[in-house]
Design a protein around this nucleic acid. Structure first.
Lengths: 244, 244
DNA sequence: GAGTTATAGTTGTCTATACATCTGTAACTG
DNA sequence: CAGTTACAGATGTATAGACAACTATAACTC
């Protein structure tokens, strides 16, 4: 149902409605109601309907075909969320025993880069957690987590011995919508090399990830920077071919 | 310049104009002319300007800030891994001009590693194509493709000037179901560094991908090994959190 | 000087409408 | 029956406005 007086934008309300429809009733390949049908049904402008539909197309949930209609996409990319689930699970899947070693835990302000990524004020307080991630007692990655204090409240060290995601989702009762991740190559700096127990200048993978909450503003909840030993770790992913 | 009588959509013409502006005159962080300025300058609707700008935002070339304006984004070539797409498609999506430079083309048997990945007999013939992939004339990646002759038939060099996927899907009429991909970090070897025009020992990303056909046996159709310059390229992926 | 209040300028949302282009089907034509 | 044409309905492009929400700055007030 669409509420025109709600502060929530109409296009967003419609997006949610279509998402629910797809999840509950429609199957891949099915035809979505046409733009005009939605416009008439809710007495809203067709351009507003298009805005909702365009966002879902951008997400890959549906696709358009000129002159035919809009269709439900094949389910996309069940990417093993080794990233988003956890390092621990990932390692266990590889038959290794994961563990963590906390290196530092502090509250910090004035980190402009992290603040900008997390979309908070530069002087807002951030938790900054550095830890080493190991598999079978061997260092694999050096991880730095930034998360805004005003979103996660008072944290203690214990929260990082288990999955931070569990804490966010089960204790804070927040829901993570998606994560964005980039991977590039670099050379190990002196400090990083020492922690990872490899020679300085060895190649490493630098992964950066930002996770967003499932709210209207898609609030960033954490920014993680990880340095992986390239001799011990590589990223693996499966991709489904997109529809045209 | 905008030509209202052109069959090319106005929003697309404006997109191209803004792309050029960014490439030639503006730097990351710079403010783009406002939507209203563009609308008045070319006597077009603000909604049309928004369509152009939205597309560039989607590509990550620029970003908007409500109440402030639209700004040029920091830039690095990023590959969107949420779907399996070719380098060419990928670059074009970013408004860059992709090109290829063929380095070698041969038929080879007895490459046990490639044969094993492609699930063919070790003495089956494979095409082995080495090429340099460029964006706006700049070398980005060094790519080696292995594909079984018995699956793709007689190939000529021309097939590799366009997208190899296009050839597989449109000419051979085969359908690619999915791809498996790994990413690791390494140091550029002498030979690779020379082709990529970077110093030896610089960090590079090594990507290996195997693509599978949409048939019963999920036949491997190609195995690709690519070396990406890490100063010009990073991998990007979005992960959706699974719904419960 | 510090805090508050206008104000101009920006992007965000939305409307009502028009015509273009493409697709599939039904009706027509030979 | 095969080919063509007409048409309805779909998305694609584009217009000319309107008001909301947000930002930075200038002007004002205490």
């Amino acid at each position: 149902m669409i509420n025109k007086n709600s502060p929530i934008p109409i296009y967003y309300q419609l997006e949610e409605e279509i998402r629910t429809l797809i999840k509950q009733e429609l199957n891949p390949g099915d035809l979505l109601p046409s733009e005009r049908e939605y416009a008439e049904k809710y007495d809203i402008s067709r351009m507003t309907v298009r805005q909702a539909i365009n966002n879902l197309v951008k997400e890959g949930l549906i696709y358009r075909q000129k002159g035919r209609g809009t269709f439900i996409a094949e389910k996309k990319f069940e990417q093993d969320l080794s990233g988003l689930s956890s390092f621990s699970e990932d390692m266990r899947n590889r038959g290794l025993t994961p563990s963590n070693k906390l290196l530092s835990f502090q509250i910090m302000a004035d980190n402009p880069r992290a603040a900008s990524i997390l979309k908070v004020e530069p002087n807002d307080e951030l938790y900054v957690i550095k830890r080493l991630r190991l598999a079978n007692e061997e260092p694999i990655a050096l991880e730095t987590i930034f998360t805004p204090k005003k979103l996660v409240g008072e944290l203690s060290l214990d929260h990082f011995n288990v999955s931070f995601y569990d804490y966010i989702e089960n204790t804070l009762n927040l829901s993570i919508a998606y994560g964005e991740q980039t991977i590039e190559a670099a050379l190990a700096k002196t400090e990083e090399a020492r922690e990872l127990n490899i020679p300085r200048g060895k190649p490493v993978l630098v992964m950066e990830r930002t996770s967003y909450l499932k709210d209207e503003q898609q609030t960033p909840i954490e920014y993680v920077n990880s340095i992986y030993r390239s001799d011990k770790y590589k990223f693996k992913m499966q991709m489904k071919r997109e529809q045209d």
